[in-house]
């Protein structure tokens, strides 16, 4: 279970969020651009420090301003798929997926096993030796996800994972992505703009506005919840 309770003063408003994602559930985070969704993900990942609050994962504190605990991002073991995918352009697909395992100094054999497994599962086996800069948008998305899953994270963060794809690929990947994350079975937060993502991927949905969560509920009720439907459709 992931529990977030953080405050941070941002340029235009104060971010103040309390959220909870149970084991194996997927929380969809929606809201307008600049409402603090990505900032929140970055705080959970350890890339931005909150001013105060706590972030705990399965009971273990990742950040606690009271106890002065602040685990560095490399020690949090969180799988993060960035909006632009952030693949390393100078490395191949295989090297991208292996990156986190190499950083963990696993044996070469173990790395190869796990990387091959991920590559095959993600349908990337055929292009494992292609440079990450040269593959298509859909392949980039799969590579980014495979890279995040390869480290066997305790938590998944996905920032607009489908936004960079064209409409047709979005529809295909939506179901695939939902299944993949669900199968993985760790708490996940997915930031999105698209109501279709909320319904087909998520268990729960939270709407953010100017740094605060103004509505939370089950994902399937997204069309009934007035503030949600209004905000996302806008």
């Amino acid at each position: 279970m992931l529990e977030i309770n953080v405050q941070k003063r941002l340029r235009d408003f104060d971010l103040e969020v309390s959220l909870c994602v149970p084991e194996g559930e997927i929380l969809m985070l929606v809201g307008e651009n600049g409402c603090g969704k990505s900032t929140l993900l970055n705080m959970v990942a350890g890339l931005i420090n909150p001013d105060a609050g706590e972030i705990t994962l399965s009971g273990e504190p990742l950040f606690d301003s009271g106890l002065r605990i602040n685990l560095s991002p490399e020690k949090r073991n969180i799988g993060y798929v960035f909006q632009s995918y952030a693949l390393f352009p100078h490395l191949t697909v295989r090297e991208n997926v292996a990156f986190g395992l190499k950083a963990r100094r696993l044996s070469r054999q173990k790395i190869e096993e796990r990387v091959n497994e991920q590559l095959k599962a993600a349908g990337l086996w055929g292009m494992r030796d292609a440079r990450a800069a040269r593959i298509s948008g859909g392949q980039k998305q799969r590579t980014a996800l495979a890279r995040a899953l390869a480290i066997e994270p305790r938590l998944l963060l996905l920032d607009e994972p489908l936004a960079a794809l064209d409409i047709r690929r979005q529809a295909e990947m939506r179901t695939e992505l939902g299944n993949l994350i669900r199968d993985f079975g760790v708490p996940s937060i997915v930031v999105t703009h698209d109501l279709r993502d909320v319904v087909s991927i998520g268990d729960m949905v939270s709407l953010m506005e100017e740094g605060r969560v103004i509505h939370s509920g089950p994902a399937e009720e997204v069309f009934n919840a007035e503030p949600l439907a209004g905000a996302v459709m806008r």
């Binding site: 991002p73 490399e74 632009s84 952030a86 390393f88 986190g100 950083a103 480290i151």
Partner: peptide, 17 residues
Amino acid sequence: DLVLENAARTLGASRTR
């Protein structure tokens, strides 16, 4: 791009790495 460095850190790489 700073996001590449951030991605590498979330994957477990130290600043030096």
